[in-house]
Structures are given as C-alpha cells and as structure tokens.
C-alpha cells in the first residue's frame, strides 16, 4: 500500500485560504487527471478528518474545505491547520486494488435543436460550411465526459466535442439565455442550468432541469459522468415539459 504522497510524487499542495487547501495534480484537461481527482476525492470523503467540511473537484485540482478551529483542536500532526490537513491527506493510503470504476451508461439529455430553441444553429452550420442536420448529427453522436461543475449551480464542463464544431463566442453576449439552452463556445459545449446572461452560440434546448434544488442530487450531472445528447422534435420537447 502506498500513501498519497508516494503515489503522487508530483502533487502540489497549496492553501487557498485559512479554511481550504488545494491539491494540484497537473495542469491539463485529461481523462487521466479526472480519474486522479475523482479517486482522491472519494478517498478523502470516505476517510474524513476532524473538521472536514466539503470538497470541490475541478479539472486538475481538488480543493478541500475545513473548519480551522476543529482542525486546530484536533490531534492531527502539524503546527498549523494547513500542515495538519495536508499531512493528514498526504498520508492517506491508496488502496492496492483500486475499485474498478465500471463505466456507467451515459446520461441521455434530450435536445430540440434549432428554431426558437437554438437561434444560433444556422449561423454555426454556415460558419463550418455544414448543413444544419450535419451539426445536429455531430453534436448528438459524441459521448461527452463531465470534467467538473462550476460557473453556476449545475453547470457541467463537458469534454469530448468534435473539434469541427468549435465556434467563437458571440461578439455581444445575450442579456438572458433561457435555462436548458445548449451552447458551444470554443471547443466546449454545455447546457445552461439557469437563466443567465451568456455569450455562447445557442444551438438547442433541453426540457430537462439541469439543476433542481428539490432533488436529492440537485445537479443532474456530476464530475465523471458521461453524457450524450438525443435529438428530439419540438413536439417531443413540449411533451417532456408536460410530464
């Protein structure tokens, strides 16, 4: 069995403030880093130290929030809270037989493309000299990976979009983009969980709630999930909303 420190010799640890510590595993977007961040996140949550509050996984970092007073009063090894928490985390044992992460089937997100729901679909198609159908086909065939959540509640940063669809942001952001809007910005695609201002090219909309505070898991997606978009008609969209 190896400790976290031995297993990740390249790991950088720094304080975010007096209440949080960040573990940095690298500085790229990759499936490998996603696995590392997810594995260590689970390890910490399954072995909570005194004063642990919560964790925030991101592309290449994992941030751990704690209650400094509880850490200070604990018998964790170290002089300051930052040392106590980092010593404790870095000495966690990585299990030899790591749980095989069995690939879950992708979360299906129905999307009605174009029309009033996707006002920028034709512009995106023209930009890439593709038909509208081809854009829809490329966008709804790929399997995406949720790398992290951020920006607004329930917003998932998705990786895996076909680069032929990469499109610049709108020159002038819209003052209001409806919740459920599916957009493209650069090489990223994503779904707006809430009605917010936004500069992404909007190609469609899902009738699903990406964020609902009344659900046990309010965010539909979580880091590590796989996602696929499913092309639905305007009528099917309306039916979804009715149910």
């Amino acid at each position: 069995m190896q400790t976290l420190r031995e297993y990740f010799p390249q790991l950088i640890v720094y304080p975010l403030n007096e209440k949080a510590i960040t573990l940095q595993f690298g500085n790229t977007i990759s499936a490998n880093l996603l696995t590392q961040v997810t594995t260590v996140n689970q390890l910490i949550l399954e072995n909570p130290f005194p004063g642990l509050v919560t964790t925030v996984p991101a592309y290449s970092t994992l941030t751990v929030y704690y209650n400094p007073l509880k850490v200070y009063q604990s018998d964790l090894d170290g002089l300051y809270c930052f040392q106590k928490v980092s010593n404790c985390i870095l000495s966690l044992n990585i299990p030899n037989s790591q749980k095989k992460i069995t690939a879950q089937p992708p979360v299906i997100i129905p999307v009605c493309y174009g029309g009033e729901f996707g006002p920028d679909l034709e512009e995106v198609a023209a930009m890439h000299k593709l038909s509208v159908e081809a854009v829809i086909d490329i966008h709804s065939t790929a399997i995406y990976t949720v790398y992290m959540l951020g920006f607004v509640p329930g917003f998932a940063y998705l990786g895996g979009m076909d680069k032929t669809l990469a499109s610049p942001r709108k020159a002038t952001p819209r003052a209001s983009v409806p919740a459920g809007s599916v957009g493209i910005a650069g090489e990223q695609t994503g779904v707006y969980p809430l009605q917010t201002p936004g500069g992404w090219q909007i190609i469609g909309r899902t009738p699903l709630s990406m964020f609902d505070a009344t659900r046990t898991q309010p965010s539909l997606l979580k880091a590590g999930d796989r996602v696929q978009f499913e092309h639905i008609s305007a009528r099917e969209f309306k039916n979804y909303q009715a149910t």
Binding site: N17, K19, Q24, V56, A58, Y59, S60, T61, T63, F151
Partner: peptide, 13 residues
C-alpha cells in the same frame, strides 16, 4: 500569460 484551468475560488479571492 498561461491560461488558468478553472479551479476553486472562495470569498476573499
């Protein structure tokens, strides 16, 4: 001028 990959921020950052 590297691009910072989105990572945790908190009140006071």
């Amino acid at each position: 001028t590297s691009e910072l990959l989105s990572t945790a921020v908190t009140m006071g950052t």
